[in-house]
Amino acid sequence: MRILGWFKYRSPFGMTFMFQRITGLILLFYLCLHLAYLTSLQEKELYEFFTSITVSKQFFIFDSLLILCGVFHGLNGLRIIIHELGFAHEHRRVVLIITGLLAVVAWLYGSYIMFLAIGD
């Protein structure tokens, strides 16, 4: 079980590495669901049945978490790209904090828009 090596927490950076893997897997799972969802467009009743479950206040929490996963995965990916180009290794803590702050702002804003879109 060498893959357990991914999940040994040691530093904030190891932690973001681990979350990058986890959010990646979640997004992949979501993509599969999403494709299944789109297939249901061929049958109107099925589609309406799905939307009645997923577009609702009770389901909002999942939408919000999904946004968090997407935002984190994307922004953290950008952070890694900066370092992988060989830049800002000495300032990696600052870069990490900025990435974190940006992710929280983007997540809250995205969730707010989503919340408004759901309506009643």
């Binding site: 190891g14 590495f17 370092h83």
Partner: peptide, 20 residues
């Protein structure tokens, strides 16, 4: 780029940077 190497290095070398 998990950066763990640079974090634990007792001599504060930045192996992660060297790799990039």
């Amino acid at each position: 780029s998990a950066m763990e190497c640079s974090e634990v290095c007792p001599k504060q070398i930045e192996p992660a940077k060297a790799i990039q």
